[in-house]
Design a protein around this nucleic acid. Structure first.
Length: 286
DNA sequence: ATTCAATCCTGTCGGC
DNA sequence: TGCCGACAGGATTGAA
C-alpha cells in the first residue's frame, strides 16, 4: 500500500531509469488502468509517441512525468497495488501488466505499469502554470515539501469540525499520509484517532507534523514499506520498513512504549491501530 | 459550506 | 476440500 515514502522511492527510480528517454510505443492492455484519461487508451498511447519524458515529479501520492517541450504530463497513481517496473524488453509479461512503454533507444529496457487491483492508473493532462497536472491542483502540498505551511495547516485543523485521523487522510489538507503512517504518527504523538482537530494546540500540531516527517523519512531511508509483497519499487525490490512499524498491524501485541496490548478498531471501512493506554480516547459529549 | 458514506477491484485468508 | 465472507484501502462522487 504505497504512501508517500514508497511513491518517492518510485519517483527516484523513474528519474534514474526513465527520465530523458523518448517514447516509441505505448501498449494499453487494460482500459481500466487509463480510465482517468477520458479520451481513451488509444488516444493516450498516440499522444505519447515521439515525446521525451522530463524529470519525474511527485506531490503526495501522485507522481508525474512531464512531456518535454509540451505543457502536458503523464500522471500516475499507484492505488493500493500499483507498481512501476523497469524491465528488460524480453522479460515475460507480469500477470497483471496493464500498460507498457517502449523507448526509441538501445537500452533494452521498458517501463511497465502493473496493478492487480486496478485502483491505480495513468492519464495525460495539461499542466497548470506551476507545472502541476491540472486534475491534482486541489491536492495539498505534502509534509516533505519545503513549501508546506505548518502554521496554515494548524489554522485549518482548528477551523475544521472533524477528527484528527480523518484530517490526516484528507489530501486537500495534507497529502501523502495514508492509513499506515497516520497510525504510526498518532502513536508517536500519543494522540487518539478520534481527537477533535479543534482541540489541538499549536505545539501539539507541531509535534504531530514532526512525527509524520520522522516516520516518513525513516521509511524513505529503507526504501519504503511493504506488507503483502504487492508493492515493489521501480526495479522490483520490496521495501522492508514494515519491520519497524510501531502501531499498524500490531493488534494484541504489546505497545513498544508501555507494554499494554494494542487494539484494532474498525474505522471508515478500514482499521485503526492504537495503544489504549498511551492514546486515550477523547471525552465524549454523550 | 462542509462532512461523510458509498463505490471501485481482486486476491488471500480464516472459519465452517 | 471447498465455499463464503471479511478484509486490504485512496480518491472520487454525490448526498446530507
Amino acid at each position: 500500500m504505497p504512501e508517500l515514502p514508497e511513491v518517492e522511492v518510485v519517483r527516484r527510480g523513474l528519474e534514474r531509469w526513465v527520465s530523458g528517454r523518448t517514447v516509441a510505443v505505448v501498449q494499453v492492455m487494460h482500459p481500466r488502468a487509463v480510465r482517468r484519461h477520458e479520451a481513451g487508451g488509444d488516444d493516450f498511447a498516440a499522444r505519447l509517441v515521439g515525446h521525451r519524458f522530463g524529470t519525474a515529479r511527485r506531490r503526495g501520492k501522485y507522481l508525474w512525468l512531464p512531456l518535454a517541450d509540451t505543457d502536458a504530463s503523464v500522471l500516475g497513481h499507484l492505488g493500493m497495488s500499483g507498481q512501476l517496473l523497469v524491465q528488460p524488453e524480453d522479460a515475460p509479461d507480469e500477470k497483471h501488466l496493464r500498460v507498457r512503454f517502449r523507448f526509441d533507444d538501445p537500452l533494452g529496457t521498458e517501463l511497465r505499469f502493473v496493478d492487480q487491483r486496478t485502483f491505480g492508473g495513468l492519464s495525460l493532462h495539461d499542466n497548470t502554470p506551476d507545472g502541476l497536472p491540472d486534475v491534482i491542483a486541489h491536492i495539498a502540498r505534502d509534509p516533505l515539501d519545503p513549501a508546506f505551511d505548518d502554521a496554515a495547516f494548524h489554522t485549518a485543523l482548528r477551523l475544521r469540525r472533524t477528527t484528527v485521523k480523518r484530517a490526516l487522510l484528507d489530501q486537500s489538507l495534507i497529502s501523502g499520509v495514508g492509513n499506515i503512517y497516520a497510525d504510526e504518527a498518532l502513536w508517536r504523538t500519543r494522540l487518539h484517532y478520534d481527537r477533535p482537530t479543534a482541540t489541538l494546540t499549536r505545539p501539539r500540531t507541531a509535534e504531530l507534523l514532526g512525527h509524520i516527517r520522522d516516520v516518513m523519512n525513516a521509511a524513505l531511508a529503507v526504501g519504503g514499506t511493504s506488507f503483502d509483497s504487492l508493492y515493489v519499487n521501480v526495479n522490483g525490490e520490496s521495501g522492508y520498513f514494515d519491520r519497524s512499524l510501531d502501531a499498524y498491524g500490531r493488534e494484541n501485541l504489546p505497545c513498544r512504549r508501555c507494554g499494554t496490548l494494542m487494539r484494532r478498531r474498525p474505522w471508515m471501512n478500514r482499521s485503526s491501530y492504537y495503544c489504549p493506554h498511551c492514546q486515550r480516547p477523547p471525552r465524549t459529549t454523550a
